[in-house]
């Protein structure tokens, strides 16, 4: 793996004594989309803030493209664009002025064509001359993305980009993310919409209590930790499980209509054939069968529970 960002033994303790990060080690591959999941206060924003240079680390190092982000901060920051979690924008400047300002801050010369195209891509072009304070929350979010992309970064951090965003903007956002990835931009995002991480990310990292408890290829993660459930609907409800089925990991629904069997897809034998045979032998008639695969959300909840 060619790492574009390398994080080594990174720790952060705030002045209040709160330890936000505990010895984080992480390599981010060039061109990938990495999703960082974790409950509120887990340390996701602190991690991003340190990489971007907003917060100083207590110990450990971060390199981007081989440059240390403290010593060679100019070289690393040029590469990075950040979309913060909060809608932190000025009030009285216009959309156009604010993105020009952002581009200039990052040392890039004016480029009207690029910035106009950027605004068009984000459906912001008609708001070009509007004052920031007059924009809706969703529009402000778009402006923050435009600002982050104004200097053509190679690495983009999106901190909770879809928090409080409507469906349309969310779709737009993911389209933009896909397009950026196609153009070679590395994207790191934090989210608590797990289905989105599941849909868009290549790799998933889980942070809990300042520790990176897992980083895994999404497919491997789903595969390794994935559990399947077989739900058996009965023609007639039963009040308790028949004795002959007691050896199986079965739960009976409250109304007595459904049996749920949880099994591991990776084990040699799933035991489904024998179970169905036994159900038949116990004199129960089947109405329907359903199979449910655990989502990333279930995996995540399990992990954080273990971690906590």
């Amino acid at each position: 793996m060619q790492a574009i960002v390398s994080i080594n033994d990174l720790s952060k303790t705030y002045q209040s004594g709160f330890q936000a990060l505990k010895k984080i080690n992480l390599d981010i591959a060039k061109g990938e989309i990495l999703a960082l999941l974790g409950p509120n206060g887990a340390g996701k924003t602190t991690l991003i803030s340190i990489i971007c240079g907003i917060v100083s680390p207590s110990s450990g190092t971060v390199t981007a493209n081989g440059h240390d982000n403290v010593i060679d901060y100019r070289k690393t920051r040029e590469l990075i664009g950040l979309v913060p979690q909060e809608l932190t924008l000025g009030a009285f400047d216009t959309v156009w002025n604010t993105i020009q300002f952002s581009r200039g801050l990052f040392g890039k010369k004016k480029d009207k064509t690029y910035l106009e195209q950027l605004l068009k891509d984000l459906s912001l072009f008609d708001k070009k001359n509007h004052e920031l304070r007059t924009l809706s929350g969703g529009m402000k979010r778009r402006v923050l993305i435009a600002k982050a992309l104004s200097h053509e970064p190679e690495i983009l951090f999106l901190d909770e980009p879809t928090a409080g965003v409507d469906v349309e903007l969310r779709k737009d956002m993911w389209n933009i993310v896909r397009r950026l990835r196609e153009s070679g931009v590395t994207i790191i995002l934090t989210t608590h919409y797990i289905e989105e991480a599941e849909e868009i990310a290549d790799r998933i990292g889980v942070i809990s209590n300042g520790e990176l408890i897992l980083v895994e290829d999404k497919q491997t993660l789903m595969h390794n930790l994935g559990k399947k459930q077989l739900i058996v609907e009965l023609k007639e409800a039963v009040s308790s499980l028949p004795q002959s089925l007691a050896t199986y990991d079965l739960t009976l629904s409250d109304d007595g209509n459904k049996l749920t069997y949880t099994y591991d897809t990776m084990s040699d034998s799933t035991g489904i054939t024998a179970l169905l045979q036994n159900i038949h032998n116990a004199g129960l008639a089947l109405k329907d069968l359903q199979i449910k695969q655990s989502s990333l959300e279930d995996i995540f909840v399990d992990l954080v529970k273990e971690g906590g």
């Binding site: 240079g53 907003i54 932190t88 000025g90 990052f106």
Partner: peptide
């Protein structure tokens, strides 16, 4: 003070400046 107040100072902190 105003960028500090609105929070938009994050951009100055994260810029190569």
């Amino acid at each position: 003070f105003f960028p500090k107040f609105t929070g938009s100072i994050y951009e100055i902190h994260s810029a190569p400046i």
